[in-house]
């Protein structure tokens, strides 16, 4: 099994056929902040109609990659292609009509109510003279309904719980009515129940409307549960890419996260479950450093 995209059987498919299935793609993408490269010559295709989760340790370049996909960051090398065109040559407004993006922990001005926040998602569809058309109205209502925030419409964001607030932000991105949706850690700072609530919502959207969703997630088990494809990154490069079962192996966890863990499989869905091991419950007393130099010692058998 080789998770690298390059060796994917899909490569056999002619380019034209592939183009139909892949709207968003990174080619030799290098990203840098102030000259310091964060992502190195990375190739990645986002398949249409899938939920893709990007995982990886802190500082591996996940959010940076997502920002480049959302045209928020200009590549230092290579390019991001949207429908075969380099996204940085496209007008901001056109991209905004195709790709919706929700950054990590966005901030809203005090006293903004949910309906107004969501209505601001209609910005790419508005002009200076057409500020609140019927389509705008309908789209905002759909977004509010889909996220279950219609009842909260008149409440200000400050009054909401973390999960409600996150749903309101997602509603704003939804109101943009783009087929591609990029979410940067939408479950950040939420308790487990609220994480599930948000991810269920994402899955609903995906199932009901066939939206392509790319999200950055920290919780590996949740990523495995909700995503069709996982992309594991380390040090600005893709370490593995494929279905959750292909990617989430004990070997990969050790290599990418430096984490000793047991991977089990959830009974009903068969999704991989990551059970991290504490240093204190190591099967043998050897320091972790030595364990790492060994060739993948059996820490537990996958079921």
């Amino acid at each position: 099994m080789s998770p690298r995209k390059r060796q994917d059987p899909m490569d056999a498919v002619p380019d034209a056929a592939r183009a139909a299935r892949v709207r968003l793609r990174a080619e030799g993408l290098t990203l840098a902040y102030d000259g310091t490269p964060v992502v190195h010559a990375l190739d990645l295709d986002i398949e249409d109609g899938t939920v893709t989760a990007i995982i990886g340790p802190n500082g591996c370049g996940k959010s940076t990659l997502l920002r480049a996909f959302g045209r928020l960051l200009k590549p230092a090398g290579g390019q991001v292609l949207l429908d075969g065109r380099p996204v940085h040559r496209l007008p901001t407004r056109e991209v905004a009509g195709l790709v919706g993006m929700l950054p990590q922990s966005p901030v809203a001005p005090e006293g903004l109510c949910v309906a107004d926040l969501v209505a601001r998602g209609r910005h790419p569809h508005q002009t200076w003279y057409r500020r609140w058309s019927r389509e705008d109205e309908a789209a905002v209502e759909r977004a509010l309904r889909a996220t279950g925030t219609l009842d909260l419409a008149e409440r200000t964001l400050d009054e909401l719980s973390g999960g409600q607030r996150q749903r309101a932000w997602i509603a704003m991105a939804l109101a943009q009515e783009t087929e591609l949706l990029l979410l940067d850690e939408p479950t950040n700072h939420l308790d487990l129940a609220h994480q599930m609530e948000v991810l269920d919502l994402v899955l609903d959207l995906h199932r009901d409307t066939g939206r392509t969703v790319v999200l950055v997630l920290h919780d590996l088990s949740l990523a495995a549960r909700y995503a069709d494809r996982l992309v594991a990154m380390k040090d600005g490069r893709i370490a593995a890419c494929g279905t959750p079962a292909e990617v989430l192996t004990e070997k990969l966890l050790r290599e990418v996260f430096g984490l000793r863990a047991v991977v089990r499989h959830e009974e009903r869905t068969g999704a991989p479950l990551v059970i991290p091991l504490s240093r204190h419950e190591a099967p043998r007393p050897a320091p972790a450093r030595d364990a790492a130099t060994d060739a993948a010692p059996p820490l537990g058998d996958p079921v």
Partner: peptide, 23 residues
């Protein structure tokens, strides 16, 4: 007056504003 809609989007942060198509 021409600046007001852009300013509304910018009040959600530059990233969100850009994602909403604001230059």
């Amino acid at each position: 007056a021409a600046n007001a809609p852009g300013l509304n989007a910018l009040s959600l942060g530059e990233d969100v504003a850009r994602a909403l198509g604001v230059r």
